Computed example of a mutant assay.
Amino acid sequence: MVTHTSPSILEATGLTVTRNEADIVHDISFRLPAGELVMLVGPNGAGKSTLLNLLAGLSRPDAGSLLVNGQPAADFSRTDWAQRVTLVPQLSSAGFPLSVQEVVELGGLAHSQSVVALRKEVQQALNDWDINWLAKRDIRLLSGGEQQRCQLARSWLQMQQAGSLLWLLDEPLSALDLRHQQQCMHKAKALTAQGKTVVMVVHDLNLARHFADRVLLLSCGRLMADG
């Protein structure tokens, strides 16, 4: 297990999730310092998405604890948590007839101080993620990669507006072409340069080798390696 001396944004101790008397996640412990790009790797069913959902606050462990900036996760209100942690889930179909611009705006509505400022930031996010030309399109009619870039732009805007410390991404690259995979990775690295921490589930070990500051290897719900 790798040890760190810098202050941690998040610290997990003994995280365990049990379903039907089997541990989906078993006794996982680690800490995430500021300014790291951390990749979760491992085979299908290893527990990567379950662990990411725990870190995102979408579910609670059956055992173990989670601290954010030294404070128990359970002590945060949903609003306070949303200001610290931003999640991009696995790609899913949109259920409402929203335009790309409206979806991206959702990332800033709760945090923006003015409509004018929000519109400016939304436009910047659309440009940054190469979806400005799709702004008026119904998100349900887009390709999987276009929808994914829309969700990335939404979460990116939320990171900027809320000042989040932790960006969690569950297989964000699966629907993207090579150019946009590279774009996503460079933006993730840019966030770490600002002192943010990024945790990303990936299957491409070459990307992990080139971009990750740290890799957590999961297998059968256990943390097998951290380095």
Rank of each mutant, 00 (worst) to 15 (best):
Q83C: 14
Q194L: 13
L98H: 12
S6L: 06
E36H: 10
L40K: 09
L169I: 00
Q71L: 08
K136C: 10
N206D: 15
K48V: 06
P172W: 01
S8T: 11
R60F: 10
I9D: 00
S155M: 08
L51A: 09
L207I: 12
E105T: 14
M1S: 14
M224C: 11
N69P: 05
P72L: 05
I28G: 00
V215L: 01
A46C: 10
L207M: 12
E102A: 14
A135N: 06
R78I: 12
R60W: 09
A193H: 02
S6W: 00
D177H: 05
Q124R: 14
S92L: 11
S143G: 07
L54W: 06
W156G: 07
W129K: 11
R78G: 12
L55C: 07
F96Q: 03
L32Y: 00
M200H: 07
P172D: 07
W81L: 09
V85P: 04
G221E: 08
C184H: 07
G64H: 06
P43N: 13
L217V: 13
E102L: 10
V68F: 12
Q160T: 08
H210A: 15
G107A: 11
M200C: 15
Q160M: 13
M200S: 13
Q71P: 00
I24W: 02
I9K: 06
Q182S: 02
M224F: 00
G95R: 07
M159S: 03
V88M: 13
P7T: 08
Q194V: 09
H111W: 15
V68L: 15
G64D: 00
L98Y: 14
L166C: 03
S164F: 04
L15R: 05
L10M: 15
E105L: 11
L191I: 04
I24E: 05
V41Q: 11
R60Y: 10
Q124Y: 11
S65C: 08
L223E: 12
Q161R: 07
N206I: 08
A110L: 12
A225S: 03
V2G: 08
Q124P: 01
S29V: 03
E36V: 10
S174W: 03
R119K: 04
G145A: 09
K48Y: 02
Q160G: 02
L109W: 10
G108I: 09
V85K: 05
N206K: 13
Q124A: 15
V215K: 07
Q101H: 07
G14R: 00
R222M: 03
N20Y: 06
Q113I: 06
G163A: 10
R149V: 14
N127D: 13
A46S: 15
L168I: 06
G70R: 08
S155N: 05
F76N: 07
H111F: 15
P172Y: 02
A188Y: 06
E121D: 13
Q83I: 08
E36P: 08
V201I: 15
L142K: 01
S164T: 14
L207W: 00
S77H: 13
H4A: 11
L109S: 05
L55W: 09
L191C: 11
N206G: 12
N44D: 04
A74E: 13
L173T: 13
G64N: 05
L142T: 04
V85F: 05
